[in-house]
Amino acid sequence: MQWSFPMIVIVVVLGLLGIGFYGLLIVRNLIKVVVALQVLAKGAMLALVLAGELAGQIYIGDSMAITLIVADTIVAVIGLALAVQVRRHIGSLDIGHLSKLRR
């Protein structure tokens, strides 16, 4: 079986998504959770670029990807800012300690 370029990218996208979700499920450090989220988003970004490629409209795909990077960075910044506050006021970055609100 011939490995075409899109298929390789798809595998990478799926890999990034898998790693990202896996990270979200098992990682306990809040900083690492944010990193896992970033991995997820990078998978989506790659998918956008690939979509532009496959649709024959590379510029649109790229501009979407760039927009995604911006949005994603903002989310990461907010996530990290929250992490700083969490460390300061709760005293731990372990998300296991972030489970007071339940039931």
Binding site: F21, L24, L25, I26, V33, I95, G96, L98, S99, K100, L101, R102, R103
Partner: peptide, 17 residues
Amino acid sequence: LRPTQTGILSWNVLGIL
């Protein structure tokens, strides 16, 4: 039903999956 609201992030993400 109330324990289903675990309050633990990992379980919430699992819900999404």
